[in-house]
């Protein structure tokens, strides 16, 4: 019962805030809406009993990635954009229409294929972090290592890109 109420509350909140990201012409407000969406999604993960993923979502998305967005936007100090959206009535109508068609198709497809999915084993207990860790360091160990290398490359790359043409630390 609680999880049902929570699901409706959180899904409405997440979708409304996501719409805020889309429609607010000021990028900083978009970023702040994005934070709220992320928090809503992380609570949704808690509701799905994926506690570790929810916590990581809070740390990584809400705590780091979106802070970067907000920070960069404030650093630029952009004024309210006169032209936040792309031009052209016909093309935007086309975009909205195709997005709606895609949503319709996805939800229709998932409804139709619901019967195909066999129910898993009876719900025992929620997946613990220990199980996750054991799997991560055995079956997925190679992927985990590659991920580490990717992060290293990305860190070096980001520093290099943003230091081009001077930057704040230029001698």
């Amino acid at each position: 019962m609680t999880s049902t109420v929570l699901f409706y509350l959180l899904s409405v909140v997440s979708i409304v805030f996501a719409l805020g990201v889309l429609f607010n012409p000021n990028p900083i407000f978009s970023a702040l809406y994005l934070v709220l969406t992320m928090i809503g999604m992380s609570l949704m993960f808690f509701n799905l009993e994926a506690y570790f993923i929810g916590g990581v979502q809070l740390i990584v998305y809400a705590g780091a990635v979106t802070v970067l967005f907000v920070m960069v936007l404030m650093l630029f100090d952009l004024k309210k954009e006169k032209q936040a959206f792309t031009k052209g009535l016909f093309s935007s109508l086309l975009k909205y229409f195709s997005a709606g068609a895609l949503l319709f198709m996805i939800s229709g497809a998932s409804l139709m294929s619901m019967g195909l999915m066999t129910e898993g084993a009876e719900k025992a207990e929620p997946i613990t972090t220990k199980q996750l860790a054991a799997l991560l360091f055995t079956d997925y160990f190679f992927a985990f290592e590659v991920l580490g290398i990717i992060l290293l490359v990305v860190a070096i790359g980001a520093v290099t890109i943003s230091r081009i043409r001077g930057g704040t630390h230029a001698k």
Binding site: F46, G63, V67, M74
Partner: peptide
């Protein structure tokens, strides 16, 4: 108690940055 302990604390306290950014901006 989520059974999540420190992950939850780290996640929640990382949200503190927003108040400063919002106040500053």
């Amino acid at each position: 108690d989520f059974g999540l302990g420190i992950v939850y604390v780290l996640g929640v306290s990382s949200l503190a940055t927003y108040s400063m950014l919002m106040a500053g901006w």
